[in-house]
Amino acid sequence: MIDASIHRVTGTAVPIEGNDVDTDQIVPARFLKEITFDRMGSYLFYDARQGDSANHPLDNPRYAGASIMLVDHNFGCGSSREHAPQAIRRAGFKALIGASFAEIFLGNCRSLGIVTATADAAVLAQLADAIQQQPQTQWTIDVAAATVTVAGMAALPVRIKDAHQQAFLAGTWDELIVLKAQEAAIRERAKSLPYFSW
C-alpha cells in the first residue's frame, strides 16, 4: 500500500491578504464547466490576476515557487466546490496557514491532503513579516508538533484540528478505504433507520 502519511510540509510561502476570500475568487464558477479537475490549477484566482493593473501575489516573482499560502479569516467561504482546493493543490500548494477557514473548504482540503493550520494573530503577524523580509526562506510545518519553523527562527505554534492531524499522520486523509471497511455496520445502521424502508 502507498504510504500517504504527511508528517511535514516544507516550502516557501506567499501571502494572500484579506478576510473572507470566497471560493468564487479562488475559482470563478465559469471554470466549473469541465468534467475533470485537470485544468483547475490554471484558474486559481483567475479574475484577480487579469488586467493591466493586476498585481497578484501569485504572479509576484518575490514569491515564485511558493507552496504554502498565508491567509486571513474565513478563507474559502462560500461554495462547496472542491474545484477550489483542487486548484490550490494543482497550482503546487501543499499547506495553508491562516486565522480561520470555512467549514466545507477545510474538509475538502483534508480530503486532498492539503494541510490547513490556524494560528493566533501574533504568530500570523510574525509569519507575514518573515515573508516580507525573506520571501524565499524555507518554512517547515511539523504536523505532529503543530508548529511552523521559519529558517533562523524559533518554532511557532499553530493549530491543526485533531482529526486532521491524526488523518495526515496516519495517511488516511482520503477516508474511502476506512469508510468502506465498515460495510456491514453501514447496512446495519441503515436498517435501524425507519425511513430507509418507507
Partner: peptide, 16 residues
C-alpha cells in the same frame, strides 16, 4: 460536500 465526499457517499453512503 465536496466531490471527494460525493464519491464517498456514492460508494459507501457514508462520510467522515
Amino acid at each position: 460536500i465536496g466531490t471527494t465526499d460525493v464519491r464517498n457517499v456514492l460508494e459507501t453512503q457514508t462520510m467522515a
